[in-house]
Each structure stands twice: as structure tokens, then as C-alpha cells.
Simulated scan of single mutants.
Amino acid sequence: MFAPASGHGVFDRDGGERQLALEYLAEAWNVAEDDGVQTGSLAHASLFAALATFVKMHGDEATADLIALLPDRIRSGEYNLDRILQ
């Protein structure tokens, strides 16, 4: 599902560490898919792990506030891996 980071997209603005993190996650994701783990299961597990980490680091309210911003960001295409940036 994930190609190696292409140098385009939302992670470019945030610098090298997030780019590196995405590359590690992409590699793990691809290995799991090669081992037969379903994409939907990977997505759900990833969301759970990310949200649980945010709750642990920032608390319930801050995490809920962050999540409340996601619908508009999703609709604007920020999380679309096929999106072409000009």
C-alpha cells in the first residue's frame, strides 16, 4: 500500500524525523502485507496505536480536539496518497 516516501506531501513540511518515521512505518506495513495481514486490519491497528499514543502523551481532550480537525483535512485530500501536488 505504501510506496517509499516520494518527497511530496504533508510530511515534507514537518521535516526529516517525520519523513523517516513514515518510511519505517511503510516498510513495516509492506512486510505485514507480504505476510498476509489484511490492509484493513493494518489500518485499524495503526489508528488504534496512534490514538492510544496521543492520549498517553497529550490526554483525552487534546486528542479529541486533534481528531475533530481530521474530517476537513481528509476531505481536502491531505491524506490521499494518490493526490497530485502542483
Rank of each mutant, 00 (worst) to 15 (best):
M1K: 12
M1I: 06
M1G: 13
M1T: 12
F2C: 03
F2K: 03
P4E: 11
A5D: 09
A5W: 08
S6K: 09
H8S: 08
V10L: 14
V10F: 10
V10N: 03
V10K: 02
D12I: 09
D12F: 07
D12E: 15
D14R: 13
G15L: 11
G15P: 13
G15N: 12
G15F: 04
R18L: 15
Q19I: 15
A21E: 12
A21F: 00
L22R: 15
L22P: 01
L22M: 14
E23V: 07
E23P: 03
Y24T: 09
Y24I: 05
L25R: 08
L25S: 05
A26G: 10
A26R: 00
A26D: 01
E27K: 05
A28V: 02
A28I: 02
A28P: 00
W29D: 00
N30E: 01
V31F: 06
A32F: 02
E33K: 06
D35C: 05
D35I: 01
G36C: 00
V37Y: 02
V37K: 06
V37T: 10
V37S: 02
Q38Y: 00
Q38C: 00
T39G: 01
G40M: 02
S41F: 01
S41G: 03
L42V: 03
L42S: 02
A43H: 08
H44R: 08
A45P: 01
S46D: 00
L47C: 09
F48D: 05
A49D: 15
A49F: 09
A49T: 13
A50S: 11
A52W: 06
T53H: 14
F54R: 15
F54V: 06
V55A: 08
K56F: 14
K56C: 04
M57F: 08
H58V: 10
H58I: 06
G59Y: 04
G59C: 07
D60R: 13
E61I: 05
A62D: 13
T63P: 10
A64D: 13
A64I: 09
A64N: 12
D65W: 12
D65V: 06
D65Y: 14
I67G: 04
A68G: 12
A68M: 08
A68P: 06
L69S: 12
L70A: 13
L70R: 03
L70E: 08
P71C: 06
D72R: 15
R73M: 14
I74W: 09
R75H: 07
R75V: 01
S76P: 02
E78K: 10
E78D: 11
E78R: 10
N80V: 02
L81G: 06
L81K: 07
D82P: 00
D82T: 10
D82M: 10
D82S: 13
I84A: 10
I84V: 15
I84S: 12
Q86D: 14
Q86V: 01
